[in-house]
Design a binder for these strands. Structure first.
Lengths: 191, 191
DNA sequence: GACAACATGTAATAGGTTACATGATTTA
DNA sequence: TAAATCATGTAACCTATTACATGTTGTC
């Protein structure tokens, strides 16, 4: 079984009512480094959850703003969430173009390899910063994290930093090596 | 742009001819920790690549074995592969039920949290071992890795070990904390 | 006698993404 | 006046998974 957008929506709603728009923001701010979801999947998910009686919807009109549909978890929804969380195996998959490109780096011009390293490095740094900012924000607002959430975030930070440190230490050597290869054989006709 | 099965198949074929069955094994042995693909995607991919003239197919009958279709990269296929590798941004996404479950650990019974930690730990250890075995196998056969591949594998190992070490060090405390929570409130009626 | 490895393929289904459509208000 | 934020939704598409169908040989 895989955790789908519907289940994650139920999860977000345990923290209180929210609109589809709100939930999207939660996904971006809280789940983004291990789960992505777009409006195109969130809105249909909420519609379906409402049809199944797992959430209820209340329409709210606001001055100078579009109407919003605010969803709240029902008891059935809470039960379904718990049952799903119980039954879901803790998988952890990576889909990485970065690793794949490294695997075929010898087919690429040296400059490209250097760029890949740099781009990955700035991506990782951005992710790390985002998580640190989230922690700072939560600290300031004093809305404490649950122990599991603290563990989750610290594990992610620890892992990401190790990933970054390795690239920072060994990336430049790889780029140089690629440079040496490229200039000495014919696979790339640059210059 | 995303690296799809078709492109990865072209990549595998740069190392020489292979059947769909061979390619599946390569995926399992080499890509498994950052990319998964099943027969249901590999066979159609090869058919399509052949239609596009990016690979050629030769049917080979074997004694006491089913026939195999052996595919080889064409010049057009090699060019297409290089162009795709040039144009593909080095993304790196994680889809993790494990992180998601941690995020909602406070809704789960303590035992379950402990199991999640243990299961993740043995998964990571298995992955690490597989990579180490692959390295040992390659070392024995003396078919050296390209520099990019060595970097890729070492980065993966380094990252996975950091991930594992954090869980090993802090996981037990989380399980204990969950235990304390569960026994003092009503969210779980076990025992 | 059952299961794993060898070998290929299809069809139904799942689970998303992207782009589009709509439209007000605030900010630069 | 251009762009961002707020706000919802649909339709076309993509990509891959799962399960099924088929059959032999070798191993436990």
């Amino acid at each position: 079984m895989t955790l789908d957008v519907k289940t994650l929506c139920l999860g977000v709603l345990t923290q209180g009512e929210a609109s589809g728009y709100d939930i999207k923001k939660q996904f971006e701010q809280v789940f983004s480094y291990f789960y992505v979801a777009s409006f195109g999947s969130i809105y249909p998910a909420l519609t379906q959850l409402a049809r199944e009686g797992l959430v209820v919807c209340r329409e709210e009109s606001q001055p100078n703003r579009p109407d919003r549909k605010v969803y709240a978890l029902t008891e059935a929804g809470r039960e379904r969430l718990l049952a799903t969380l119980q039954a879901t195996p803790p998988r952890h998959r990576i889909r990485s173009e970065f690793y794949a490109l490294l695997h075929f780096a010898h087919l690429l011009p040296a400059r490209r390899v250097g760029e890949l390293i740099d781009e990955r490095l700035s991506d990782v740094n951005r992710t790390i910063e985002e998580i640190e900012n989230m922690l700072a924000r939560l600290g300031a607002e004093d809305c404490g994290l649950e122990p599991g959430q603290r563990f989750e975030v610290e594990l992610a930070l620890h892992t990401l930093r190790a990933h970054r440190d390795f690239i920072q230490k060994n990336g430049p050597a790889l780029a140089r090596e690629a440079q040496a290869n490229t200039s000495s054989d014919l696979q790339y006709s640059g210059t």
